[in-house]
Every structure is written in C-alpha cells, then in structure tokens.
C-alpha cells in the first residue's frame, strides 16, 4: 500500500461518477483491470460481491460500476450510469451473486470471472476506500497491486532466474520497479509475476518477453 504523502488532487479529487468512491469508483477500477487483462470487454461475466458489498452493491451502483469497468470505461465516464444496458446491447451475459464469507477479510471484496473468446480469467479485488483498490489474486494466484502505476503482469512457467531476467530487461529500458510480487501454483508449475513500474517499458521489450518460451501471457496495464 502506498505510504506516499497525499497530493492536492487527492483532496480535490478524484473526478468520478458518484455516489461512492469505494462502492462506485473503486469497483470501476477493479473491473477495468479485468478489461485490460482480457484485452477487451468480456462476452460472459460472473461477479461475486462479498460481505459489505453483498448487502450494498445495488444501492451504490456497484453493479453498474463493475460492468462499466469490464467495458473499459474510466471512473469519470458518464456512461457508467447506463453501463448495464450498454453491455447488454453488445451481447454481454452477466450474473451478480451476493455472498457472505468469513474467508474474505476485507468487507469490500469482489471476485470477477470473465470469458472472452477462448480466454478465461478470474480476478479478486478489494476496494479500500477513496477509490483506491488492491488486486489480490489473478487466476487464484496471489498478488498485490494498486492499479495506480503502469503494471507489468507476466504469467509464466516457474523457471530459475525468471525474475532476474525480466528485471534486467526493465533495467535496460531504464524503468524503475516500484513493487514486485511473485507467486506460483507449485514448484515448476504456473507462476505470476507482477511489477509495478514508475514508467512503462518499451513496446519492443514487451514483444520480446511475450516470445520467451517459458512465458504464457504478458500484459502491460496502464494506470486504471
């Protein structure tokens, strides 16, 4: 979590669609992370609203907010209000499920299952208040990023030296790593590396990483 001192536009902002920074703006941002990881809007979406969200998601427009995010809308996009009918007109199939679970520690947790073509994705996000978010897992692999910085997300085989290799590429690009989270399903199984960056890496480097034999998928998420 960011311990940086606030700036004046944290006090005079964010510019957002109401009513709630945690239940609307934060939820849009979690949906947008899924949008960018899928490379576009999903064809199917199932959204689990946990705990506090389970009771309050409708009244705060969190249902519209998550669909808006999945469509790629930003937090200040006035189409958020009509996001569900817009998504329906594009043929999106969706379902919302309110769930109370003691396994989710944060009161404002949501889990998104989405499909687009032959791609499937599951992400879990937490809306921390003030529009701030934390993505806590991707495809059930643990992670920890805020979506405030350009974020390099690499899903790859768990191989020796992978982190050092990618870190070297970032160094050659002159890119500073703000945070790094690594997790894996099991030894030599699927691993997830997430780099929060102070600036984006070069398109050519991204293409190079994408073609490494042990890499399954690479995404450079813009700040959401």
């Amino acid at each position: 979590m960011s311990q940086e001192p606030s700036g004046i536009f944290d006090m005079l902002g964010p510019i957002m669609i109401g009513p709630s920074s945690s239940h609307t703006a934060g939820v849009v941002r979690i949906g947008r992370v899924a949008h960018f990881l899928l490379g576009g809007p999903p064809e199917e979406a199932r959204i689990l609203f946990y705990n506090s969200f389970a009771m309050t998601y409708k009244g705060h427009g969190s249902d519209k907010a998550v669909i808006a995010g999945l469509m790629g809308f930003a937090v200040d996009d006035e189409r958020i209000r009509d996001a569900i009918s817009i998504a329906e007109s594009t043929g999106l199939h969706y379902a919302f499920e309110p769930v109370i679970s003691s396994a989710k520690n944060h009161p404002n947790t949501l889990v998104i299952y989405v499909k687009r073509g032959d791609q499937e994705l599951t992400i879990e996000g937490i809306s921390r208040g003030g529009g701030l978010i934390l993505i806590s897992s991707i495809d059930e692999l643990h992670t920890n990023f805020t979506g405030q910085l350009p974020t390099l997300i690499v899903r790859a085989q768990d191989v020796r030296g992978a982190v050092a290799f990618l870190a070297a590429i970032l160094t050659y690009d002159g890119v500073n790593i703000a945070t790094l989270t690594v997790s894996r399903r099991a030894k030599d199984d699927m691993a997830l590396q997430v780099y929060e960056l102070d600036e984006p890496l070069r398109e050519a480097s991204l293409a190079y990483i994408r073609h490494l034999p042990w890499v399954r998928a690479v995404h450079l998420l813009p700040p959401v």
Partner: peptide
C-alpha cells in the same frame, strides 16, 4: 444530488461531501 444520482463530481475531499465546495 448529482453525486447521489451517479453524475460526475469531484470528491472534495470525499464523494460524501462533494456538494460543499
């Protein structure tokens, strides 16, 4: 009210207080 009706506002400092300034 613009905030409560899913309109665009500035959370200043928060969405709940976004009518005052």
């Amino acid at each position: 009210e613009t905030n409560a009706c899913m309109g665009r506002v500035v959370a200043a400092p928060t969405a709940g207080a976004s009518g005052i300034l």
